[in-house]
């Protein structure tokens, strides 16, 4: 058994006694770092979400065991805060602002345009796994309202046309990438 496995559990309680590989080894440095800092549960959950994209039940169970909390406690904290997600998200996470300034300047209309274009509802992910639509309350760029963020980029002064254009461009970029990598892999195999 490796050093790591002695210090940390192996991420499941199936009774395999550590024979299965630990699916969450990447989190162990985080757990070590915060082990002695009281009140770090939220920070640990944030780092875990950064690593894995979302908090699965297995991941939360692992964190609970490793931080000596009950699973109920971890789940209770995670579900209290809107930042935490319990399902995988698309390649592009659309955070559409529904704050006051954006609402007054027509964010509902923007939401409709996004929903029409992607054919999903708020909170859902497109079947191709590209886009997830989430509503948020205020991104702090209210003077450019309506505003949305896609991953790390902020887009302001949105109109229906502008937002469909942005989404179409992202979609196209991915499709192009896909064709490029396809050709590359074809070339490699050839």
């Amino acid at each position: 058994m490796s050093q790591e496995k002695q210090e940390h559990g192996h991420g499941c309680d199936c009774g395999c006694h550590g024979e299965q590989p630990n699916p969450f080894v990447e989190l162990n440095p985080v757990l070590d770092h915060y082990a002695d800092i009281p009140g770090s549960l939220i920070t640990v959950l944030q780092k875990a979400q950064e690593l894995y994209g979302f908090l699965s039940i297995e991941l939360m169970r692992y964190i609970a065991i490793e931080t000596h909390n009950s699973i109920a406690k971890v789940y209770g904290v995670a579900t209290f805060y809107t930042q935490f997600r319990f399902e995988p998200v698309g390649k592009y996470l659309i955070m559409l602002c529904q704050g006051t300034a954006c609402h007054v300047n027509g964010s509902k209309m923007i939401e409709e345009a996004v929903m029409d274009f992607l054919e999903i509802k708020e909170g859902e992910t497109t079947p191709d796994g590209l886009f997830t639509l989430n509503n948020v309350a205020c991104l702090g760029c209210c003077s450019l309202s309506p505003v949305m963020m896609i991953n790390d980029d902020t887009y302001g002064q949105l109109t229906k046309d502008k937002v469909t254009h942005i989404l179409a461009e992202l979609k196209e970029a991915v499709n192009n990438e896909a064709t490029v990598s396809e050709t590359v892999s074809q070339e490699v195999t050839a």
Partner: peptide, 23 residues
């Protein structure tokens, strides 16, 4: 300490609970 998205955490006693890693 980065918040995790909850308006009520602006209230000072809730903020303290959140700082301590709680709901």
């Amino acid at each position: 300490k980065a918040g995790a998205g909850a308006f009520v955490c602006g209230e000072e006693t809730a903020l303290i609970a959140s700082l301590e890693g709680e709901r």
